[in-house]
Design a binder for these strands. Structure first.
Length: 800
RNA sequence: GCGGGUGUGGCGGAAUGGCAGACGCACAGGACUUAAAAUCCUGAGAAGGCAACUUCGUGUGGGUUCAAGUCCCACCACCCGCACCA
C-alpha cells in the first residue's frame, strides 16, 4: 500500500467533509481537549509540538468513536519577539511573516492527519481576536485591577532598550552581551496579587496532576505570619512581616530594602546620607544576575541617626538598608533576629551587631538556630519577658494575641506571587486601549471603537530611550480624549505576549462572535476544558495567568465556571538521541516532519507514540519508525485473509483483552503500551489461516485513532459498512476476558519450583492438590504451614 | 538551599505488593534468494554447567512482608524548575 497517497486522499476527504467540526449544543456529551496553541515560528513544527498533537488526536478520535461531541481546536499564539526581530532584520511586516509561518504550520499539521476543527481556528494577532483581548483588559482597568506603577525593567545600557526576562537571561543582554541593569519605569500592572488566595483555593477544584498543583502552590507562595507595626524614634512608622513572631524579643536591628520609599523620606534625618545614597545607587546598578546568582554575601549600610523601637519591649535598635531585603516582598522591611535567622546572622557578623538568643536549644556561636530546627520540638522561649518559658507554638499564639489587642500588629498572609508587569515597549503586540488626557488622566477607548488597531510603522526597532516604536507615529499617538474631547495621547506600550493566551480556550467555543468574546450559552455547553495538555515550562506562568483571567471573568459574571481547566497534563520533554537537550546551537535538533516524508503520517504517528511513556522525558529515537511501519504492513497483509464472519470463540479473549488494554492505556496516556497490545493482537491473527471480518474490524477500529488514514482505507477496501467513523467503538464482554486455562507459578517458600496450567475458576483445594501431585518430590518430608493463593497468578506453599 | 522528577539487559522501555525484563531495537543462527534488500522462523539478563539445573540480578544501605522494581527509613547520582521570600 502506498501510505503517502492514501493519506493525502483521506486528508482531502476529511477537509472537504469538515468531518472534525464540533457542533455547538449537540445532544451528545461534550469533551473538550486542548493543546497549547503554537507560536508559529519560521522553523516550522518541531518535536515540542508533534507528540502532543498526536497524543491528543488519539484521545480525540477515540472519544468521538465512543460517542462524545469532541472539541479539539487549534490556533496561533502569534504575537512575539522572534517575528518582530525577523521584521527588524528584513523589514518584512510581522503580519506577513506570521501569515506565511501559519500557512506552513497548517500544512504540516494537516499532513500529520490531526483531527483539529479547522472551522474554529484562531490567531491572537487577528484584529477580531485582539479586539477582545483589549476588551478584557479594559474590564480589568475598569475594576481597578490594571494600574500604572513604577517597576524595574531589564535595561541594556548599550542597546538602550528594555528587555524581556527571556532576552536578558542570566542578566546578560541577548543582543550584545552587556550586563543588564534594573531601571525603574512607569508601566501597566495587573493586580494578580489580589487573586492569590483564589488561585490557591481554586486548585482544589481541579484535577491537575499533583505535581502541577504543587508547582502552582509554590509559585503563589502563601506564607502565614504576622505583620507588626513599628515606629522610628523620630515618629515615622513602618510595617514588617515575619513568620517567626516568637523571636520578636531577639530583634537587635531592622533592615529596609534600599528601594524602600521610607529611606528617602528620612533623608534630612540621616547623618550619613552620602554613604546611604551611594549604597542605594550601588545596589540599583547591580544586575539581577549579581543580586541573585553571584553575590550571596551580605552588604548594607547603617542609617546613622535613625533608631527604631521594638514595639514589644520599647527597645531602641539601629536601622540598616541592605539589598538582601527585597523591596517587593512583604513590606520591604524586616525585623532582624540574628540569633534565629541565618541571613540576619551573617549580616550581624559582618556589621558586628549583637545577638539575643530567645529560643533555647541551639548553639548560636556556630550558626543561627532557625525555625526549621526548632519548630515542633517543644523548644521554649528565653529572654522574652512574660513569654519566657512558653513553647514556640504557645508563644506564637500568645504574641499574636498580644499584638492584636494592643494594636501593634496582626496575623496576616503574604504571597510570593507578584503583580503582573503587563507591558512591552515593542511593536508586535496588542496595543493597550487607553488614552492619556491631561485633564481626565487615563481614559479607556470606548468599547465600540475597539479594536485599537496596530498601525503600520517604518521601523520596528524600539526608540533610543526604550519606548515602543509606536511612539514614533505621532499621528497615531495624538488623539482626542474620549471623555472631554481635548487633545490626548495614546498609550504606546503593547501588551506582553502572555495576553492573547490568557483566554484563548474561551474563544474556541465561539470563534466568530463579534458581539462578545464568546457566547455565554456556548460557554455553558462546552464547559471546562476536560483535558489541557501542555509543556512543563508553562505550568507556572501561563497557567496562572490563564486561571487569573478566567477567575476575573467569572467574578464579573462573564464566564460560567470558576476554573477553566479540569485536568492539566504534561508531555515529557523530547531529548536529542544521545540524551542531551535538543538545541539549535548544539545542532542536535530533530525535524519530526522528516519522518512524515520518509514513512508517512501514520507510521510517524505510531513511531512517536511508541518511543516511550508519553509523560516521561525521553530521547528521540527513530528506531521505533521501522517496527511501526512493519506493523502497518503486516496489518495490510492480513486483509487478504479476511472472510465474512463473527468473532470466533478462540479469538474472543485476544479481542476483548486488546480492547480493554487500549481503552485503559489511551485514558491513562500510555500510548506506547497500547501499541504493544496492538502488535500482540496482530501477531495472534497472523498465526491463523484465515481471519473473520468482525475480528479484523476490531483490530482496525482500535488502531484507527493511532493510524487513522490506513485503517480507514483498509475499512473501505474491505467494503465494511457503515464507515469506520460511524462505527461505534468496540465493546467486549467481561466473561471473554476469562481464559479456559491459565499458567500459574508454583512456589515453595516464595521460590519458584515450577509452573502448571489450571482453570482460572478452580478453587484453592483443587489447585493445591494438583500442585502437590505435579511436584510431589518437592513435598517429600515437608510440612505445609501456610498456603498463599493469588488467583491466576501463583500459589505459594510455606513449608518446613 | 528549596520544590518536582528520574534511576530496570547492549539500547528504548513493560510490570493493580504476586512468575522482573511485556512490546520493540540492535545482535546471532536459520529459511527464502544466484546474491543482496525486504520478509519470515528461532535464540538470548549475567555468571557457572554438556545438560536437567544452580547462583546472582531493578542506583546504594537498612526495614516491613509468605512475597518488594513496587511500601517504609536513610543515602547516592542525574535531570527540570525556583532561588536571600523574612
Amino acid at each position: 500500500m502506498d501510505f503517502k497517497n492514501v493519506e493525502k486522499k483521506w486528508q482531502k476527504i476529511w477537509e472537504q467533509e469538515h468531518r472534525y467540526h464540533a457542533k455547538d449544543f449537540d445532544s451528545k456529551p461534550k469533551y473538550y481537549i486542548l493543546v497549547e496553541f503554537p507560536y508559529p515560528s519560521g522553523a516550522g513544527l518541531h518535536v515540542g509540538h508533534t507528540p502532543n498533537q498526536i497524543a491528543m488526536d488519539i484521545l480525540a478520535r477515540k472519544k468521538r468513536a465512543e460517542g462524545y461531541n469532541v472539541l479539539y481546536p487549534i490556533g496561533w499564539d502569534a504575537f512575539g519577539l522572534p517575528t518582530e526581530n525577523y521584521a527588524i532584520k528584513t523589514g518584512i511586516h510581522p503580519k506577513e511573516v506570521t501569515r506565511k509561518n501559519v500557512e506552513h504550520f497548517k500544512e504540516q499539521i494537516k499532513s500529520l492527519g490531526i483531527s483539529f476543527d479547522w472551522d474554529r481556528e484562531i490567531n491572537t494577532t487577528d484584529e477580531e481576536y485582539y479586539k477582545w483581548t483589549q476588551w478584557i483588559f479594559l474590564q480589568f482597568f475598569k475594576k481597578g485591577l490594571a494600574y500604572k506603577a513604577e517597576a524595574n525593567i531589564n535595561w541594556c545600557p548599550k542597546c538602550k532598550i528594555g528587555l524581556s526576562n527571556e532576552e536578558s537571561e542570566g542578566g546578560i543582554c541577548e543582543r550584545c552581551g552587556t550586563p543588564t541593569l534594573q531601571k525603574p519605569k512607569s508601566q501597566w500592572m495587573l493586580k494578580m496579587s489580589e487573586y492569590a488566595e483564589k488561585l490557591l483555593q481554586g486548585l482544589d477544584e481541579t484535577n491537575y496532576w499533583e505535581n502541577i498543583k504543587a508547582m502552582q502552590r509554590k509559585w503563589i507562595g502563601k506564607s502565614e505570619g504576622t505583620t507588626m507595626h513599628c515606629k522610628l524614634e523620630s515618629g515615622e512608622s513602618f510595617d514588617i512581616f515575619t513568620t517567626c513572631i516568637e523571636t520578636v524579643f531577639g530583634i537587635t536591628y531592622f533592615v529596609l530594602a534600599p528601594e524602600n520609599p521610607l529611606v528617602d523620606k528620612l533623608k534630612d534625618k540621616i547623618e550619613n546620607w552620602d554613604e546611604v545614597l551611594a549604597y542605594k545607587e550601588k545596589s540599583a546598578k547591580k544586575s539581577e544576575f549579581e543580586r541573585t546568582e553571584l553575590v550571596k554575601e551580605k552588604s548594607g549600610c547603617e542609617l546613622k541617626g535613625i533608631k527604631a523601637i521594638n514595639p514589644i519591649n520599647g527597645k531602641k535598635v539601629p536601622v540598616y538598608i541592605g539589598d538582601y531585603v527585597l523591596a517587593n516582598y512583604g513590606s520591604g522591611a524586616v525585623m532582624a533576629v540574628p540569633a534565629h535567622d541565618q541571613r540576619d546572622y551573617d549580616f550581624a557578623k559582618l556589621m558586628n551587631l549583637p545577638m539575643i538568643e530567645v529560643i533555647e536549644g541551639g548553639n548560636i556561636k556556630e550558626c543561627a538556630f532557625e525555625k526549621a530546627d526548632y519548630l515542633g520540638k517543644g523548644c521554649k522561649l528565653i529572654n522574652s519577658a512574660g513569654f519566657s518559658g512558653m513553647t514556640v507554638e504557645e508563644a506564637k499564639a500568645a504574641l499574636n494575641k498580644y499584638l492584636e489587642e494592643n494594636g501593634l500588629g496582626k496575623k496576616e498572609c503574604t504571597y510570593r506571587m507578584r503583580d503582573w508587569v503587563f507591558r512591552r515597549q515593542r511593536y508586535w503586540g496588542e496595543p493597550v486601549p487607553l488614552v492619556y488626557c491631561e485633564h481626565c488622566g487615563w481614559v479607556p477607548v470606548p468599547e465600540n471603537e475597539l479594536p485599537v488597531k496596530l498601525p503600520n510603522v517604518d521601523k520596528y526597532v524600539p526608540t533610543d530611550d526604550g519606548e515602543s516604536p509606536l511612539s514614533r507615529i505621532t499621528e497615531w499617538v495624538n488623539t482626542t480624549c474620549p471623555k472631554c474631547g481635548q487633545p490626548a495621547k495614546r498609550e504606546t506600550d503593547v501588551m506582553p505576549n502572555w495576553a492573547g493566551s490568557s483566554w484563548y480556550w474561551l474563544r474556541y467555543m465561539d470563534p466568530h462572535n463579534d458581539k462578545a468574546f464568546a457566547d455565554f450559552e456556548k460557554m455553558k455547553y462546552w464547559g471546562k476544558v476536560d483535558i489541557y495538555n501542555g509543556g512543563g515550562e508553562h505550568v507556572t506562568r501561563h497557567l496562572l495567568y490563564a486561571r487569573f483571567w478566567h477567575k476575573f471573568l467569572y467574578d464579573n459574571g462573564l464566564v460560567p465556571y470558576s476554573e477553566p481547566f479540569d485536568r492539566r497534563i504534561q508531555q515529557g520533554i523530547i531529548l536529542a538521541s544521545d540524551g542531551s537537550k535538543m538545541s539549535k546551537s548544539a545542532g542536535n535538533t530533530v525535524d519530526p516532519m522528516e519522518y512524515v516524508e520518509k514513512y508517512g503520517a501514520d507510521v510517524s504517528r505510531l513511531g512517536q507514540m511508541f518511543m516511550g511513556d508519553y509523560t516521561e522525558m525521553k530521547p528521540w529515537s527513530d528506531a521505533t519508525m521501522k517496527p511501526c511501519e512493519r506493523l502497518l504492513n503486516r496489518i495490510v497483509a492480513l486483509k487478504d485473509k479476511v472472510t465474512k464472519g463473527e468473532i470466533r470463540d478462540e479469538n474472543k479473549f485476544i479481542c476483548a483483552s486488546s480492547i480493554k488494554k487500549v481503552n485503559e492505556d489511551v485514558e491513562n496516556l500510555k500510548f506506547n503500551t497500547a501499541i504493544s497490545q496492538i502488535m500482540i493482537f496482530t501477531s495472534a491473527l497472523e498465526k491463523q489461516e484465515k481471519i473473520n471480518s468482525e475480528e479484523y474490524k476490531v483490530l482496525l477500529k482500535i488502531l484507527n485513532p493511532f493510524a487513522p488514514h490506513i485503517t480507514e482505507e483498509l475499512w473501505e477496501e474491505c467494503k465494511f459498512s457503515p464507515k469506520i467513523e460511524e462505527t461505534a467503538w468496540p465493546s467486549y464482554n467481561e466473561k471473554d476476558l476469562i481464559q479456559n486455562e491459565v499458567e500459574i507459578a508454583v512456589q515453595q517458600n516464595s521460590k519458584i519450583i515450577g509452573r502448571m496450567n489450571i482453570s482460572p475458576t478452580a478453587d484453592q483445594s483443587e489447585i493445591e492438590e494438583k500442585a502437590k501431585k505435579e511436584f510431589a518430590q518437592k513435598f517429600e518430608n515437608k510440612e505445609i504451614i501456610k498456603v498463599v493463593l493469588i488467583p491466576s497468578r501463583l500459589i505459594n506453599f510455606i513449608v518446613k
